[in-house]
C-alpha cells in the first residue's frame, strides 16, 4: 500500500490566496495546460511502436523517472499503476545490485539512480537492499557520487578538488581549467549542497554569472551568447535557488518562456517555443515551474530533483 504523502508545511500555500499578486500575473500570460501534459506523458509511456520509443528503448528508466516525477509534481501520480511500475523497475535490477535502462539491458549507474528515484516516489525504497545498490554506485565515478548519496556516501575529497577548479566567473567546468557550463555547475553546486559544503562557493560571483543567463525572451541559456532552452530552467534555476540568489532573475518572464514552449494542442513542452516536444523538456519545464512556485505544481527539491515531500519523508523520518 502506498503510504499517504505527508503534507509539508509549505505545501498548503497553493490552497491559500496569499500569493494572488504574483499568481494573477501568471494567469495573464496564459496557463499551464497541465491536463494535456499529463495525457502526453501517459501516451508517451504507452507508446512502444514509434521510431522514437524504439531508439530510446534502452533508457526507458530515465524516461520513466522524468514522466513519473512530472506526474507527481502535477499531483497525478495516482493515474499510473504503482504495482506495474515497481515490478517493471525491479525486473531491471541485476545480480550486482545495479539497474538497467530497460528489461534485458545491462546495468548502469545512470539508470540505477533513476530506478532509486522512481522507488522513492512510490515510497518503496524499503524493498531495496541498500548495501548492494550502493556498492554499485560506489564503483562509479561522477554519477555514482550522486546516486550513492541517498545514503550519505560521497567522496568529499574529490569534490574539494573540483572546487579548486572554480573559474573567473565563479562557475565550474567539466575539468579544472574548462569553461563554465550551467549543467556542470548544477552538478557541482548540487553535490556541495547535499554534503553541506556550499560555504566554499562565491555565491555573489556565481550568482551574477547565472542570473545573466537570462536572455531577452525570459528564457535561460547555459553559456554566454548561446540560445535559451527550457532545460536550463532546471540547471540554472536550481543552482540559483541552492545558493539563495534566485531573486536576481525575472521569474515572471521565465514562467512566460516555459509556458510559451508548451504544445497547447497535443501536450508536452519543447526546448524553445514552436520546437518539437519531448518528455525530457516536459519534465524540465514542469520542474522549472515548480521552482518558480507556479500554482498547482508541487514543490521540487533543487538538489535531488524529486518532490520536496518525498525527500523530507526520506531524510527526516529515517
Amino acid at each position: 500500500m502506498r503510504r499517504k504523502v505527508k503534507v509539508s508545511p509549505n505545501r498548503n500555500f497553493f490552497s491559500r490566496s496569499k500569493l494572488m499578486s504574483s499568481t494573477s500575473s501568471f494567469f495573464q500570460m496564459g496557463q499551464l495546460a497541465a491536463d494535456k501534459h499529463v495525457r502526453y506523458i501517459l501516451m508517451a509511456e504507452k507508446e512502444k511502436e514509434g521510431i522514437e520509443s524504439v531508439v530510446m528503448d534502452h533508457l526507458r528508466m530515465n524516461g520513466a523517472y522524468w514522466g513519473l516525477t512530472t506526474l507527481d509534481l502535477l499531483e497525478k501520480l495516482g493515474t499510473v499503476s504503482e504495482d506495474e511500475v515497481v515490478s517493471w523497475v525491479m525486473t531491471c535490477q541485476h545480480e550486482s545490485g545495479g539497474f538497467a535502462g530497460n528489461t534485458g539491458h545491462d546495468p548502469h549507474v545512470l539508470y540505477t539512480l533513476s530506478a532509486v528515484q522512481i522507488l522513492a516516489l512510490f515510497d518503496k525504497l524499503n524493498i531495496l537492499d541498500v548495501e548492494k545498490v550502493s556498492n554499485v554506485a560506489g564503483l562509479q565515478n561522477k554519477d555514482g557520487s550522486f546516486a550513492g548519496d541517498m545514503w550519505g556516501e560521497i567522496d568529499t575529497r574529490r569534490l574539494l578538488t573540483t572546487l579548486l577548479a572554480a573559474n573567473l566567473d565563479g562557475g565550474f567546468g567539466c575539468t579544472p581549467g574548462a569553461e563554465s557550463h550551467a549543467g556542470q555547475i548544477f552538478c557541482c553546486v548540487g553535490a556541495l549542497a547535499i554534503t553541506g559544503n556550499l560555504h566554499h562557493v562565491d555565491k555573489d560571483k556565481l550568482g551574477w554569472w547565472l542570473c545573466e543567463r537570462q536572455v531577452e525572451s525570459g528564457g535561460l541559456n547555459g553559456r554566454p551568447k548561446k540560445l535559451p532552452d527550457v532545460c536550463y530552467s532546471w540547471w540554472v534555476l536550481s543552482s540559483l535557488i541552492m545558493i539563495d540568489r534566485v531573486h536576481w532573475i525575472d521569474k515572471a518572464k521565465l514562467v512566460k518562456f516555459i509556458l510559451d514552449s508548451q504544445d497547447l494542442d497535443n501536450g508536452g513542452i519543447s526546448d524553445r517555443p514552436n520546437d518539437a516536444v519531448d518528455i525530457f523538456h516536459t519534465y524540465f519545464g514542469i520542474a522549472g515551474l515548480s521552482l518558480l512556485e507556479y500554482p498547482g505544481v508541487k514543490a521540487i527539491d533543487p538538489a535531488y530533483a524529486l518532490p520536496v515531500d518525498v525527500i523530507n519523508r526520506i531524510i527526516f523520518t529515517k
Binding site: N10, F13, F14, R16, A193, E293, A299
Partner: peptide
Amino acid sequence: IGKHSVDTTRYL
C-alpha cells in the same frame, strides 16, 4: 515564513 513552497536557504 510558511508562505512559500520553495525554500532558498534549504541547503545553506
